[in-house]
Design a protein around this nucleic acid. Structure first.
Length: 267
DNA sequence: ATCAGCACCTGTTGGC
DNA sequence: TGCCAACAGGTGCTGA
């Protein structure tokens, strides 16, 4: 479910809600929610939250002890704050605070993972340069794309190279840059590369302004949906007329993911 | 290096 | 109405 704009929205919303709160205990309701490489969550007792940030699609909860708790929402994860005794549907893990509230992680499909680490970095998390990083410039983007035969859309989705882009925004950025998803990445012209990088930034930033896309069930830290789904040009619009040229939007499968594009606008 | 296929899970939706 | 297959904002592993 959540990609960079949704995770960023959650981080911003969550930060003021959990800052400075002290953890009384972690309640684990589905064991596999805790990453096998995690420091045991019992050690969270007495620690407190300093801030909430984002690395790629990971939420990074900075703790007083200097450690970091990372949360990956995968498809259906949700993080919300509630009273300790509130029943949260599909709750898999809860950080109960000393003040009687809890930070609840709910996840219908159980794909989400939480991990407590001494030190975080994009390297430890296995992700590449953040899609909104200033250092992702033409040169850096060029070296990622260069000589690759893989379809450009698959490259955008590869978290080890560029972190944060998921299926919605990969489709949308390619539409905006007028590039077909199957084009081998290495065969894009310099002009197309710069159009794509600009489109990617623009789409992600505008999605953050809209507080993300709620296509199905995404909600932010306050339980509110985003608005960007109203502005999507291709994602989920198979058969509907292109907003630019009225040609029906096509759906193909690429790398096992639904892929949408306008056969007239995108070359 | 790359890629298809499958695994992990559950809920929703659309077709017959 | 009911059943079943297809599909879902993600990622990791295996084997060709």
């Amino acid at each position: 479910m959540p990609e960079l704009p949704e995770v960023e929205t959650i981080a911003r919303g969550l930060d003021p809600l959990v800052r400075r709160r002290t953890i009384a205990k972690a309640e684990i309701l589905w064991e596999r929610t805790v990453d096998a490489r995690s420091i045991p969550l019992e050690t969270l007792r007495g620690d407190s939250i300093e801030s909430v940030g984002r690395i790629g699609k990971f939420l990074a909860i900075g703790l007083r002890s200097g450690r970091t708790l990372t949360v990956h929402l995968r498809m259906t994860g949700r993080l919300t704050v509630a009273k300790k005794d509130t029943h949260v549907p599909y709750e898999r893990l809860a950080l109960v605070f000393e003040d009687g509230d809890k930070l609840s992680f709910a996840d219908a499909r159980k794909f989400g993972r939480i991990r407590l680490l001494d030190e975080v970095s994009s390297d430890v998390l296995g992700v590449g340069i953040d899609a909104l990083s200033q250092s992702l410039d033409a040169a850096a983007f060029g070296s990622i794309v260069r000589k690759r035969t893989t379809p450009v859309k698959a490259l955008l989705l590869d978290q080890k190279r560029i972190a944060g882009v998921g299926n919605i925004y990969a489709n949308e950025a390619l539409f905006r840059a007028r590039i077909r998803p199957r084009r081998p990445a290495g065969r894009l012209s310099a002009r197309e590369r710069s159009a794509l990088l600009a489109a990617l930034r623009r789409v992600l930033l505008r999605a953050i302004e809209s507080r993300g896309s709620s296509v199905d069930d995404y909600v932010d830290a306050e339980g509110l949906p985003g608005d960007f789904q109203k502005k999507l040009n291709v994602y989920g619009r198979a058969g509907l007329p292109c907003r630019r040229c009225r040609t029906p939007i096509k759906r193909i499968v690429l790398g096992q993911r639904g892929t949408f594009y306008c056969p007239a606008c995108q070359r």
